[in-house]
Design a protein around this nucleic acid. Structure first.
Length: 302
RNA sequence: GGACGGGUGGGUGAGUGGUUAAAGCCAACAGACUGUAAAUCUGUCACGCCUUGCGCGUUACGAAGGUUCGAAUCCUUCCCCGUCCA
């Protein structure tokens, strides 16, 4: 299995396509937003017409108002990869969601899934008394509480949820290990082009999205009946367009914010991938012809 | 030529005698991340030093002087910038 990782806008899709084409592969998406239907322009989803007949998996698999998680991703990606291998083809995992990739290869701990009802209760409690969840967590699991910052409510909540549901401290469950993926030789590439150039590209791409139908896409999604509170609307680009439509931002203001958030996101992705073990660094954009050659050679020697 | 307003750290912009190496925001940089992760959160951000301490020293709020125990903050002169009047 080959993995093409990297920050947004580094040319992963293009590289993956070339690699898959050259080596008889099929692409498995590893992007937390491309799994949603109708969110196309802002997620830079490769149009079907540009896929050159190469199968792309795990794209457009859930509706915008459905909850999709890293655990769900991990399960489905494993099934998909197994299927591709069984057909004698090469799985080419491609995406920028480091957490999903880790859930896929390293696995998650064995524990309870999220519980909406419990979360609602916990959320209400936190709202009434900010900080109370973290204090509660430190009673159940001192270790976990020490590792999670009190301000990081989502992580505090998940830890607490697990403790309550499993009747065991999360940190104890962590110690049991993760259900890592086995049976595949995996070579992972991380695209890491010059940061300045990447940022310029991202800014330009973001502008193109705004000019190229992002706003209409948002209107369309809303017209299908999906609420603005749907998860994928929280992502940069979409969030700003929503604010634009609501009169909170001007067009220029929305664009600038979207660009800024995209840059920040790219930065965070780089931080993540820097910690990713055993990766092959590619100090360039994936749509660079020389890079394709270089990567193919490295895969061949693997 | 005259009348006001203003010149603050990479940017913006607070601060109008001490608790200010100077809020906030932006930019930049570093980091965390075990089921909504394009999310969420943390740290650094004048320079040097070490015994890394709510440590020491140096430099800093257009420039130069002055007042004061003490000035980004008050006074004087000068240099810029903006608006208005001639």
């Amino acid at each position: 299995m080959v993995a093409i990782l990297g920050a947004t806008g580094t040319g992963k899709s293009s590289l993956a396509l070339n690699v898959a084409e050259a080596l008889g592969g099929e692409i498995v998406n590893c992007d937390s937003l491309q799994v949603f239907r109708h969110f196309d322009i802002g997620t830079a989803k490769l149009p079907v017409s540009d896929r050159r007949g190469i199968p792309h998996h795990l794209i457009d698999i859930v509706n915008p108002d459905e909850i999709f998680t890293a655990g769900e991703y991990s399960r489905r990606a494993r099934e998909t990869i197994a299927g591709i291998s069984a057909r004698g083809r090469l799985p080419v995992v491609c995406g920028g969601t480091g957490f999903y990739f880790r859930a896929l290869v390293a696995g998650l701990f064995e524990g309870p899934e999220r519980d909406a009802a419990l979360r609602e209760r916990l959320g209400a409690r936190e709202k009434r008394r900010p900080g109370s969840l973290h204090r509660l967590l430190s009673r159940f699991d001192r270790d976990a509480a020490g590792r999670i910052h009190p301000h990081d409510v989502p992580k505090v909540m998940r830890a607490l949820e697990v403790c309550l549901l499993a009747q065991r401290p999360v940190s104890a469950l962590f110690r049991d290990g993760r259900n890592a993926l086995r049976g595949y030789r995996t070579i992972r590439f991380v695209l890491q082009p010059d940061r300045e150039r990447l940022y310029q590209r991202l800014d330009a791409r973001c502008r193109q999205m705004f000019q190229g139908g992002l706003i209409d896409e948002v209107r369309h999604i809303l017209s299908l009946g999906y609420p603005p509170s749907a998860k994928p609307f929280e992502s940069h680009g979409y969030k700003q367009v929503l604010q634009l439509l609501g009169g909170e931002l001007t067009l220029e203001g929305a664009l600038e914010l979207a660009q800024r958030n995209t840059r920040r996101y790219a930065k965070r992705q780089m931080t993540w991938f820097r910690q990713e073990p055993g990766v092959e660094w590619v100090p360039n954009f994936g749509d660079d012809a020389a890079v394709v050659q270089d990567v193919l050679v490295r895969v061949a020697g693997f």
